[in-house]
Design a protein around this nucleic acid. Sequence first.
DNA 1: GTCTATACTTTGATAGAC
DNA 2: GTCTATCAAAGTATAGAC
Lengths: 192, 192
Amino acid sequence: MPRTPMPDARDRILDAAADLFDRYGVHAVGMRQIIDELGCGKQLLYREFAGKDALVVAYLQRCTEDWDRTLAGALAAASTPEEQLVELIRAVQKMTPGTRGCSLRNTHAEFPDPDHPAHRVSLEHFKAVREQLRDLARRTSAPHPDRLGDRIMLIIDGLYANGAVLGETGAAAEAVDFARDVIRAETVPAPR
Amino acid sequence: MPRTPMPDARDRILDAAADLFDRYGVHAVGMRQIIDELGCGKQLLYREFAGKDALVVAYLQRCTEDWDRTLAGALAAASTPEEQLVELIRAVQKMTPGTRGCSLRNTHAEFPDPDHPAHRVSLEHFKAVREQLRDLARRTSAPHPDRLGDRIMLIIDGLYANGAVLGETGAAAEAVDFARDVIRAETVPAPR
DNA sequence: GTCTATACTTTGATAGAC
DNA sequence: GTCTATCAAAGTATAGAC
């Protein structure tokens, strides 16, 4: 084994950890497993992360960044806020099948203790998402944008759960049409 | 004092196990913990259940029975299928805050191996729920009942997830109104 | 000095024996 | 119920390769 200088050790560790956490859950994955997957030494991991809790928190932060990228992608994929909401649903729908659902939601459920940092980080994420969706809904012509934002959030939460369990042939199949109908019903048609 | 045969031993064990599994998750709870909670001997547990897997399967079956009772309660609480769907949403909404979400969904995520009995039992449950909701939707005047059933399922899945994380002040707050609007939009108004 | 690899400690898991 | 066997977890320490 040649000695590899690794400036990106942290990222490589997080790559391996995230993959295993996503597939099996945090509690089901041991540090040993992550190290074996990496092919690196134990010391390196414990030098980058104080312990498993720190690793989990970093994993969750990475997940929130992934979400922010998904949101940004949806914003870039359409020009009107109505279509941007639809694009967001489409993006979530595309990535749920074959997964265990939302990583943040699953990890939140794995750490029910409200004092645990993993619980707090994921909770803050979901509060932030709710605000993001309400903000986006406020840019539509909806007379009750908060209501629209909340309804979209409910669809997204349902999409993660349903798509993971039942796959692309489940109830999640037509979530995009569902969201479109909801947005149409909640917004004022543009004058022409 | 004659030793009572305790015919309800199985139920008492399941009571204790279900409470702990619901609060902390299956992987996070040890057999020892369940035994301590029961205050009874270990051999009793292992006489009723072959091992933890068997206990988890029984727990999931109990959860599906709980769901069937919830559904039956909703059917009994209203006279039209449209209102019965709304009652179902209301029932789910009432029980999600303060929990870790849907027990079946959470346990499903804890056992990603498709060959594991816990995975199979929960998967069958969700397939059955989809059919139950479609069946109920077929009794409404909806021209596309399968679509209505699937949309209701998406709302229910979202409700479990969102209500557990954000509580009764989250996006789940007005799920009942949401469902009512969806049902109204999907059904043909009754002639009068 | 930086990395890998292994040995070790403590703790807690399932499960069986008595 | 207690006691024990077996195993794996988190984390620490250390030995050795470059």
